[in-house]
């Protein structure tokens, strides 16, 4: 083909090169993410009976989910737990990130970050199990307290409770919250803090008026990173909650696998995804508001 002709030019163009480079992950994403998602959407619009999935499309499943007492309650519990986890995680992560960014010597920062990520070398499942060992009915805390005679029988408040679930999840996602907040704090020009004090504000007031707003993009990123996966968490309610405090993921598992109702299960999953998406959009819009003022 002549070098000047259109297909030849395309083959050599930067766009073609880019498409070629991006195609393996793109194909991977379409096959493993988009295709199952479309299948789920289709399932959720069908009716599952013993004979098999119906061919007609209907919104019955969604109506059942949105009006169902159990589904509503579990969805609310999931939202509450993940909101609490997010709040606890970000509130605890911020001081850590702040300390590393502002009070650790520059040459020691990477070591601190390394130390922070060490717990994450262990699998999530094992870490949750370890929390069960610590918080459980016959766990470290209860047996410890009993052996020194502070309590006579195991505390039930620390196991199989929402509190222990929140504690476990907050620990599991701590590093994911610390890192984005740390990055946003690192990006703050230190002369802003001096300027704040120079203009008459105390260190604390400067933090409130300058540091905190400038680190909001990191905080919002942390909120999203913690909120999105925790709302669909399956392991912690099962192990720490002892199956007595199921969240929406446990409900989906029960409907999909135990009751073998793929259609209804898909509808719950789609609903959960929709709610997560809505919450995320709100935060992304918030983030954009903060980011707008900061691009140079």
């Amino acid at each position: 083909m002549e070098p000047g002709s259109t297909p030849g030019r395309f083959r050599n163009s930067e766009a073609a090169n880019g498409l070629f480079m991006v195609s393996p992950p793109a194909i991977y994403a379409v096959l493993l993410l988009a295709a199952p998602l479309i299948a789920m959407v289709l399932y959720s619009l069908m009716v599952d009976s013993k004979v098999g999935l119906s061919s007609g499309l209907t919104f019955d499943n969604y109506l059942k989910v949105w009006t169902g007492r159990i589904d509503q309650a579990l969805m609310i519990r999931s939202l509450t737990v993940s909101a609490m986890v997010t709040l606890v995680t970000v509130l605890l992560a911020y001081p850590v990130a702040y300390f590393v960014s502002f009070h650790v010597k520059p040459e020691k920062k990477s070591m601190w970050l390394f130390l922070i990520t060490i717990p994450f070398w262990t699998s999530y499942l094992i870490r949750v199990f370890l929390w069960k060992v610590i918080l459980g009915y016959n766990g470290v805390i209860n047996s410890g307290l009993m052996s020194i005679g502070i309590i006579d029988e195991p505390l039930t408040i620390i196991n199989y409770s929402l509190g222990s679930m929140i504690m476990t999840l907050a620990h599991a996602y701590a590093a994911f919250a610390i890192l984005p907040i740390f990055v946003s704090l690192e990006k703050i020009d230190r002369s802003f803090l001096e300027a704040g004090q120079d203009l008459g504000e105390s260190k604390f007031r400067t933090f409130i008026r300058v540091t905190l707003p400038l680190s909001m993009p990191g905080v919002i990123a942390a909120v999203l990173i913690v909120f999105i996966p925790t709302i669909g968490d399956y392991v912690t309610p099962e192990l720490i909650g002892g199956g007595k405090l199921p969240m929406i993921a446990n409900r989906i598992e029960a409907i999909m696998l135990k009751q073998n109702d793929k259609a209804l299960g898909s509808a719950i999953a789609m609903t959960a995804m929709l709610i997560v998406a809505l919450v995320s959009i709100v935060f992304i819009l918030l983030n954009r508001r903060f980011l707008r003022g900061q691009s140079k």
Binding site: D189, S191, A195, Q197, G200, S202, V210, P213, G293
Partner: peptide, 21 residues
């Protein structure tokens, strides 16, 4: 006497104009 109560004000080399305001 901390910086915030001194009767001085500074124009920084980087200007330090708060980007969020």
């Amino acid at each position: 006497v901390p910086a915030n109560v001194r009767p001085t004000n500074m124009v920084f080399q980087s200007y330090a104009i708060f980007p969020h305001l």
